[in-house]
């Protein structure tokens, strides 16, 4: 077990290396010049060149890459070209909203999707199955920003139940914090429930077809008891896997949701930075995202061992 964890940890190094190389390569291949953007419309070419050299952007690419990797190895992610602040500080400021949104969305998605999946599996092949699954897929069929607008229009503007936009720190009180997260996580949850509902349905269905479930049924256990105490726990492994893989997809959705609901998270930070070519910030955030993704998948592998005695390493 211990050596398994050690091996898995070591395996993350090349993955993060690939991420670093890919991200750096893509960004510096792309046109666009932060120096020109900063210097503004009235700057002369000489001024733009001076700005570029001050920012270190006139160095050979491999030297820029080397310098960046060197600082990353020392726990430094560099300084933002635009705001002149350490990337670690910028990320620190934006971490809480994104983590909060990801967690609440995961909860909302599971709360929506698992019951749908279980009901569909329970009534597999019937119109109930088809209609609840179609409902789940319908949520996935609209881009998340459209779902967001519809929710804002109905829940906030027409009914006046929830705030339209914004984010409150957890430090400002749990109530306002949670109220501001309801709509964004619902919008994202509706978009992602199909993914998890589908895998829940398949997994539960598979378990329901096994002998011990039939035995339990024949012993006179009610269907809901069978579903809740036998089928669902045994279907947990694949569901957890999909949630893990889904985190990367979810982070993509978070980017859009943060823009719609004016949430000051990491997603907006990185999209802004890509559009303005703030290289250190993009590199830093994507490296963090990749690290989180790798970390979560490592955790999930460990959960496998805990959840399913058949899996050994």
């Amino acid at each position: 077990m211990f050596s398994f964890i050690a091996r898995r940890l070591l395996a993350t190094i090349p993955v993060l290396g690939v991420v670093a190389l890919v991200v750096f390569g893509i960004l510096h291949l792309s046109p666009g010049d932060p120096a020109a953007l900063i210097a503004g419309d009235h700057a002369t070419p000489q001024q733009v060149a001076a700005m570029r050299s001050k920012l270190g952007l006139d160095q050979p690419l491999w030297e820029q890459f080397g310098a960046w990797i060197w600082s990353v190895l020392h726990g430094e992610l560099g300084i933002s070209i635009f705001s002149n602040q350490p990337v670690t500080r910028l990320i620190g400021q934006r971490l809480e909203p994104t983590i909060a949104l990801t967690i609440t969305t995961t909860i909302v998605t599971v709360l929506l999707a698992v019951p749908i999946g279980v009901i569909a599996a329970w009534r597999a092949g019937t119109w109930i199955d088809r209609s609840v699954m179609s409902f789940a897929v319908l949520g996935f069929s609209f881009p998340v920003f459209v779902v967001g607008y519809l929710l804002i229009y109905v829940v906030s503007m027409t009914l006046g139940w929830l705030p339209i936009q914004g984010y409150r720190n957890l430090g400002d009180g749990f109530g306002p914090f949670l109220i501001h997260l309801v709509l964004p996580s619902l919008a994202l949850g509706i978009s992602f429930m199909a993914l998890i509902a589908r895998i829940t349905r398949t997994s539960v269905l598979e378990v329901l077809n096994q002998d011990y479930i039939r035995t339990a049924r024949s012993k006179g256990l009610a269907m809901w008891q069978v579903l809740l105490y036998h089928a669902l726990p045994n279907a947990a492994v694949p569901i957890v896997t999909v949630i893990g893989v889904g985190i990367a997809v979810l982070i993509g959705g978070v980017v859009v949701t943060e823009s719609v609901f004016a949430i000051p998270g990491l997603g907006r930070l990185v999209v802004d930075s890509i559009l303005s070519r703030d290289y250190p910030v993009i590199q830093g955030v994507l490296l963090i995202f990749a690290g989180v993704y790798v970390g979560i998948n490592l955790l999930i592998d460990l959960l496998y061992v805990a959840l399913d005695p058949r899996i050994r390493y």
Partner: peptide, 17 residues
């Protein structure tokens, strides 16, 4: 693994640039 570890949309935006 490296490509998968970068959130899909963000990788796509970066490629679009």
């Amino acid at each position: 693994d490296g490509l998968m570890a970068i959130p899909a949309i963000l990788l796509a935006i970066a490629l679009m640039a």
